[in-house]
């Protein structure tokens, strides 16, 4: 049985279409990522799956249970970490965990195995109020609280937003270890680079899924040739390339610009050199998820 099944979900808030015909399934033990910026509809989708919102149209099942009819049963089985840090700031780390264990009718001890790895990292601060923890620590505590009742499905809504790269890496390491315990995880993130850490991802924008697949397939199916270009004056380089008639897109990507073009690279090189650019590097680049996302976004905008 697929732990998460979403079929043709629609959701509207006033005039704004928050979700538009969303369908996907998550396989047992899979780490599934919803990748997209703020406002893509990720949180709305999580709330529908966590039985907190009703979809306008469509069907969704968690562990074979309907999110509308069997909401009570689902609520007992899922672990949910909402988008913003939602723990009691004035309770200590330990009190928070204890409280969430109790309301799920269990104890910290009973499921300690599951949270040991994570809890040991925050245990030194267990008498500190949750509000005084650093961003990364808060996320770890929130994960512990979502895991303490041994859920059979885990929903994590933007667990790494606003957290520094080190804590983000640690957090994803934890998710990889949780995967070994065979808990299916649905996680959302606005950081495109985190997509590669998921088994499969759905790229979301404006309430619609643009593509679903494994990160490697998504990247390998991307046919457009990408060139990495840099020079000593990046700002002028961007303007010059965008002005070039045979350049389709030009975006900053780390130290390089990622450029798609129909022009011959040697021709571009010579025209840039005559334009006075120095330190010019033009080389083929491997597309990343972000390249794909941006090209899908442009296609979506043009389609509207």
């Amino acid at each position: 049985m697929e732990p998460i099944v979403v079929q043709n979900i629609f959701k509207q808030f006033g005039n704004v279409s928050a979700l538009h015909d969303i369908s996907f399934t998550v396989a047992p033990g899979e780490l599934f990522g919803l990748i997209g910026p703020d406002g893509a509809g990720k949180s709305t989708l999580f709330r529908i799956l966590a039985t907190l919102l009703l979809a306008d149209k469509g069907k969704a099942m968690v562990n074979g249970l309907d999110v509308v009819k069997d909401y009570r049963a689902i609520r007992r089985q899922v672990g949910y970490m909402p988008g913003k840090f939602s723990l009691y700031q004035d309770l200590t780390v330990e009190e928070n965990l204890h409280f969430f264990a109790t309301i799920f009718n269990t104890t910290i001890k009973e499921n300690y195995d599951l949270i040991r790895d994570i809890y040991e990292q925050i245990a030194p601060f267990k008498t500190r109020p949750a509000g005084k923890l650093s961003g990364g620590m808060k996320q770890k505590l929130a994960l512990c609280c979502a895991l303490v009742h041994k859920p059979s499905v885990l929903f994590l809504d933007e667990p790494t937003t606003g957290v520094d790269p080190v804590s983000r890496k640690e957090f994803w390491d934890m998710l990889q270890r949780l995967k070994e315990k065979n808990i299916p995880i649905l996680v959302s993130t606005p950081y495109m680079d985190e997509a590669t850490l998921c088994d499969r991802v759905a790229l979301m924008q404006n309430g619609a899924i643009m593509q679903i697949d494994t990160p490697s397939t998504i990247v390998s199916q991307f046919r457009t040739k990408i060139w990495a270009i840099k020079s000593n004056d990046m700002y002028r380089l961007i303007r010059d390339l965008r002005a070039h008639p045979e350049v389709q897109s030009c975006f900053a990507f780390g130290e390089f610009l990622h450029v798609t073009m129909t022009a011959d690279p040697e021709e571009v090189r010579s025209s840039l050199t005559t334009g006075g650019h120095t330190g010019l590097v033009i080389q083929p680049a491997n597309a990343g998820i972000e390249d794909v996302f941006m090209s899908l976004m442009q296609a979506q905008t043009q389609a509207v």
Partner: peptide, 24 residues
């Protein structure tokens, strides 16, 4: 201060275009 948190990749770059422009 973290001006581009949660923003989509294209807008993020457009934002940086503005930054470059000002710097220039």
């Amino acid at each position: 201060d973290e001006p581009t948190g949660g923003v989509d990749p294209i807008t993020r770059r457009q934002f940086w275009d503005l930054i470059y422009e000002s710097a220039a």
